[in-house]
Design a protein around this nucleic acid. Structure first.
Ligand code: FES
Ligand code: FES
Lengths: 143, 143
DNA sequence: TGCAACTGTAACAAATATAATAACAGTAAG
DNA sequence: CTTACTGTTATTATATTTGTTACAGTTGCA
């Protein structure tokens, strides 16, 4: 899995945390620890799916467009990283004269696809608000 | 996830498929479609965990050391790829003066770790023998 | 005993994927 | 009309993954 999912979740949690639920790509990038351009790219994706809206021009930025306790990690995963648990590399060889060589790629495809469904089912149970609460809990344990 | 898990599963299914449950790294590599050296590296790992035993020297190779219907994908995953669903890149920054920046990495760690448990729970339900059966089924649908 | 066919392991090279950065057009506020 | 922002693409740097080579160690067998 690449880290777009992580960045998307972090960005939304950060927005949820802000009183006005708004921040610029620069502020988010600083918080997430990456480049503003990368944030914009991923947020642009989240905008197209309705998670956030954007305001261009001066005083603009990204604005959380839904309720943090309604947005699940499953939705974010689907929006940013669907298919990413399956490795790009596939085993086997269709030209080989062996049932295993010819069909393993397809079977592993099924397996990874079902595995991803399990993952999504788990993410379904966690909202952005939950993650923010976990952050608060983690913070408390430091004090 | 890198593809060591895929290669390990494929190799064991291939061994299970063979009447004598034995094959050399060259035969496996041809079937899997990779380099014999890569197969040896991964099989060496499986040997240390008792999935296979090896015979060096002439007429040697890798031998399935357990019953294919007793070996689950969960065990293979744990042996080869534990921790790999979590991306290496971590968001946040401990030095930042923000609760979210400081704790997201830890929280996402938890989330990915729990997600991986779900994945493993699913893999627990699939054996090498099951995968071989799926291969056979996939083959039938081609005829 | 010596050759041939294997595994075990490490080192290196090539290919690919990921992340960072730069650049610039478009937009809105003031 | 300038400033602060997003949107998007292109490029570069870095990290990861895969392929390949090399060679020592092991075993069977003529
Ligand atoms: S920016 Fe990569 S999936 Fe949206
Ligand atoms: S060879 Fe990579 S985990 Fe075993």
């Amino acid at each position: 899995m690449n880290s777009e999912f992580t960045i998307a979740v972090h960005s939304l949690v950060f927005l949820a945390y802000r009183p006005d639920r708004m921040a610029t790509s620069e502020m988010i990038a600083l918080n997430v620890n990456t480049h503003p351009s990368r944030v914009r790219k991923i947020m642009s994706c989240l905008r197209k799916q309705g998670f956030v809206r954007t305001k261009e021009g001066i005083g603009g930025g990204f604005i959380f467009n839904r309720s943090p306790d309604q947005v699940t990690l499953a939705e974010i995963y689907r929006a940013t990283s669907i298919g990413s648990i399956k490795p790009a590399w596939c085993s086997g060889n269709e030209d080989e004269d062996c049932m295993v060589a010819c069909n393993m790629a397809e079977v592993m495809d099924q397996v990874f696809s079902e595995a991803e469904q399990q993952l999504i089912a788990y993410f379904e149970r966690i909202t952005v608000a939950d993650v923010l609460r976990r952050v608060q809990t983690a913070q408390q344990f430091k004090n």
